[in-house]
Amino acid sequence: MKPLRTIPLWPAVRHLLLIAGAVVLLAPFIWMISTASKPPEEVFSSELHLIPHHFALWDNLKIAFAKANLWRFLLNGVIVTVSIFVLQVLIALPAAYALAKLRFLGRDALFALILFGILIPPQATAIPVFLLLHKLDLLDSYAALVLPFTISVFGIFLMRQFFKSVPDDLVDAARMDGISEFGIVWRVMLPAAIPAVTAFGIFSVVAHWNDYFWPLIVLNSEQLRTPPLAVAHFRNNEAGTNYGPLMAAAMVIIAPLLIAFLLAQRRFIEGITLTGIK
């Protein structure tokens, strides 16, 4: 017979701590789902309960979709985040390739500057960029949402670190085979770096899908709104905030991210642990 006390103390404590952390992180989400499933009377009742007495998720979703053009906002989110990501990749990969594999004067100084760029918070440059977009007459357009983010310093850094692990011989072999330098970026480096690109894609898409600050500044038109703005829209309704539909809408806009992450999860983990090609 096995003795009963087989659970060692330290792993048990460790797991308890982790579970506590997970609960803290998950609580807002659980509360969101709970609120989204409650009818208005229950949302405003003084007693706290997690499981709604009367399940009203479908009603809340219906109200949310009726009140605002959620599909349109989701589409805006997709257009903006995908454009940003594609442009970021188009710019970051060649830049990262040059920084990792080409030898030219001032390369290390340039890379140091790029690292420095990571330290600058986007809010610091918000006003100059806003004025620039104003001068170009691009405010209140998709371009205003996309252009300021096309050069991702973090993306260049991440891809450069990954490209460093690609053997030089592979690049030289490609040159012997007649592939041009840009061809090497897209035909040799990109396929080798898919995990890193996926990881970067998740960072980028999550950041810009959830971005509230920048769209709030540059947008006026309702039809250009991105998902976070759309959710905020539920708040300042004449009849007071309607939390049930608001939370239901919040669930709707988070869902695409969750699904995307679950699909790309394995690649994502591979990417941030930066396992290069052997």
Binding site: P167, D169, A173, A192, I277
Partner: peptide, 8 residues
Amino acid sequence: FQSYALYP
């Protein structure tokens, strides 16, 4: 090449 440098 010594490492063969095949496209993985």
